[in-house]
Design a protein around this nucleic acid. Sequence first.
DNA 1: ACTCAGTAGACTGTAGACGATAGCCAAAAG
DNA 2: CTTTTGGCTATCGTCTACAGTCTACTGAGT
Lengths: 230, 230
Amino acid sequence: MLSTGLPQGTVPKLERPGPLRERVYDALLELITSRALRPGQHLVETELAGHLGVSRQPVREALQRLSTEGWVDLRPAQGAFVHEPTEEEADQLLVVRALLETEAARLAAGNASGRGIQRLKDLCAVGEDAVREDDVDAVVAANAAFHAEVMSQAGNAVLAELAAQVDQRVRWYYTPVARSRGMQSWEEHRELIDAVASQDEAAATRIMRAHTEHTRASYHERADRAEADA
Amino acid sequence: MLSTGLPQGTVPKLERPGPLRERVYDALLELITSRALRPGQHLVETELAGHLGVSRQPVREALQRLSTEGWVDLRPAQGAFVHEPTEEEADQLLVVRALLETEAARLAAGNASGRGIQRLKDLCAVGEDAVREDDVDAVVAANAAFHAEVMSQAGNAVLAELAAQVDQRVRWYYTPVARSRGMQSWEEHRELIDAVASQDEAAATRIMRAHTEHTRASYHERADRAEADA
DNA sequence: ACTCAGTAGACTGTAGACGATAGCCAAAAG
DNA sequence: CTTTTGGCTATCGTCTACAGTCTACTGAGT
């Protein structure tokens, strides 16, 4: 056992660098999702390496991973290009996410625990507060936290991992909609909590399916509007 | 237009090596799934490189990718270890695969086309022939092909990609069961074809869910039996 | 038996070099 | 004038070598 005599938390836990490839990965993902790197753009290894102050190797490993997760396309002997999203792919991602989230809700209802219900209620309250204060960023964050909690209570790590991947990509396509939509969906969250609390798997399934379907509809509304404008 | 005057196919089209990391990836995946590399085993980069006759770099990139797909665990500053499957994870994978396959069946029913139905019937016939001839390998292959065809007809690339990943991992845990199970499930395949042909999404969903549930049950039977033996 | 410094093995990252490949463009051939 | 050829450039794919660092083990000393 450690017995340094120091109170916990006083030592700043000198920053562990962690594998460099991880940080490069994070940095690139941030650049892509923030659209600083635009879809279709050619990512030159040496440029990225120079820009980030590292050598080519960590960059290559990060690109490798980004490629398996669908963020960049790796063309042999040409290099990495930021993936270009399409309407079709966006819709497919929404379908899959809806499927995964719905299953998570069902499983969560099967595993309902008092503590878990309370956590969901707390997160819901946080979200509703944020709505009242018109703090869009906080609403979006609370919404993500709520869904993550449901996913966690489903108790299926494989499901959670896939959902996390899909979710992040959806969010990339979808950022503008999420902001307008987040403001109006908290009533459905309450209904879901009731269903989970009463261990009603059918109701949880139905509510989550409707919830995700609304999301998908609002995505399409927006896409159609954008198309009409053009 | 090409006009070499050469009849097609006479030129052997000298093999292009393709990126080395791909071949290393394929080789390692084969070694893992064939259990030549055992779960928990430490994969030393230099050893693999030497054994495969390549340098460390392609090995590292292959390991990177295997790690994102769950085949190996990458512990920082220690290296790569073949992922150790657990009963819990196997069950979670089966749940997720069932979910994805069921959705695929539903979508396929919505997209039913004459040509597609015919392809499914053909594959089904191939499988039944293999059963009659007691060719277990052919049965397993036909079963995989049938499910892949359903997935393809669902017309959702994202879904298909996730399913392919999950499916391969399931198969790793599951190989012995698949062999005994494959022999008895072709009647359900016929039922599924009927449901798809009549565009009955509800029936397709129900049948595929039952089908995957049977699979899961036989997995657990076997796991329980193995536990009882031990 | 326990502690702890030292050491070996392995990973992580850097640097430089070389051949291979795709895309482009100008010059030569028909 | 059109097509083909050849060469040029940027970049990738790979290899080699080396330095830094982490982990786990070992063994002496208490």
